[in-house]
Design a binder for these strands. Sequence first.
DNA 1: CACCAGGCAAGTA
DNA 2: TACTTGCATGGT
Length: 218
Amino acid sequence: MRGNRLELLQQIYDKLFETFGPLGWWPAETPFEVVLGAILTQNTAWKNVVKAIDNLRENNALNFRAICDLPAPTLAALIRSSGFYNEKTKKVKSFCEHITQNWNGSLDDFLARDGEELRAELLGIRGIGPETADCIVLYAAYKPSFVVDAYTYRIFSRHGWIDETISYDELRNFFTEALEPNVPFFQEYHALLVKTGHLFCRRKPLCESCPLNVFFEK
DNA sequence: CACCAGGCAAGTA
DNA sequence: TACTTGCATGGT
């Protein structure tokens, strides 16, 4: 595949969208649900997160105030299925405390700011690393912040498009330096990469039927 | 049975 | 700065 990076990234997107799209991420009803899901899915299969979210909903706890008021052990029990439940309880609580103490409890105000400022502030909260921060900026605040994850590394390094040892921010820059910032486009691109990784980039035999294999030829 | 999932932080050298 | 380890359930 020759040509510049923008061309390559656009062609990859087009191929994946033609195959799987549109996926309509993030699967959530509210920005707060996006935040919860982004934390709960850290190193965890999404299927197990859905159970936790459903549990919260059934207990009328799927909202900011309820999560703030729930005792930690109770919250931990409700999100048990998502794994690392003690750690994740602390993370969810620390996020809520941050909003309460710094934004008078207004998640809307917190999310309404400039994307880069928001990202930096998110990274200062215990339990929110670069991927979780970018998910919140992109899917909860609707600001263009490209999300990179383990599948992005695998897909792009196995094709020889990047060195697998580059940092998160370097891989993120690989996309944002070439692409025009566009929220729906970034949202769908990340979803398509996760879908592709999930289906074809787990074990090697599966790679044979990956739609991106056409890019190995030219 | 082993291995992995839509990471992150803390500890070590 | 660059590794390593703990966190933990549930699916394949």
